[in-house]
């Protein structure tokens, strides 16, 4: 397990208390799991992604990530419609471990409310949240 100071939390992203990250990209939101989440999971061996076109409310389960030891559900940080999924994760789920903020992204969502990302945590606040959790 990584020590707290080893957890990478890029400043330009927003974070949810459920350990997802959101990157706003010209009206859509790219979503994945945080470095902390992948580290806690350990080796990710299976990812179940939603279909394109699926709609989720904020707080709904949109994907399942499985490591050797456990099954974890991914919680949608903002309401919207899935307009893209990272199919590369089907063949190489370990991308979630090796590149959680890059090649290991999970879904691209068109938010119902384009300003919804504003309610999420900054890197600093999320790190504080992790400190409290630990």
């Amino acid at each position: 397990m990584k020590k707290a100071e080893e957890i990478q939390l890029p400043d330009e992203l927003r974070y949810s208390v459920d350990h997802e990250w959101v990157r706003m990209e010209s009206g859509s939101a790219r979503i994945g799991i945080t470095d902390y989440a992948q580290d806690q999971l350990g080796d990710v061996v299976y990812v179940e992604l939603p279909s394109i076109g699926a709609r989720f409310a904020a707080g709904a389960v949109f994907a399942t990530v499985e490591s050797v030891k456990s099954v974890s559900e991914c919680i949608m940080p903002l309401a919207g419609e899935v307009i893209g999924v990272n199919a590369a994760l089907n063949d190489d789920p370990a991308l979630l471990n090796t590149s959680p903020y890059g090649d290991g992204w999970m879904v691209l969502v068109k938010p119902d409310d384009p300003s919804a990302g504003g309610g999420l945590l900054t890197a600093g606040r999320y790190r504080e949240h992790l400190g409290g959790a630990a």
């Binding site: 350990g42 490591s67 050797v68 030891k69 471990n97």
Partner: peptide, 8 residues
């Protein structure tokens, strides 16, 4: 449970 390299 595991060391740094992980279960796999």
């Amino acid at each position: 449970l595991q060391y740094r390299e992980g279960i796999v």
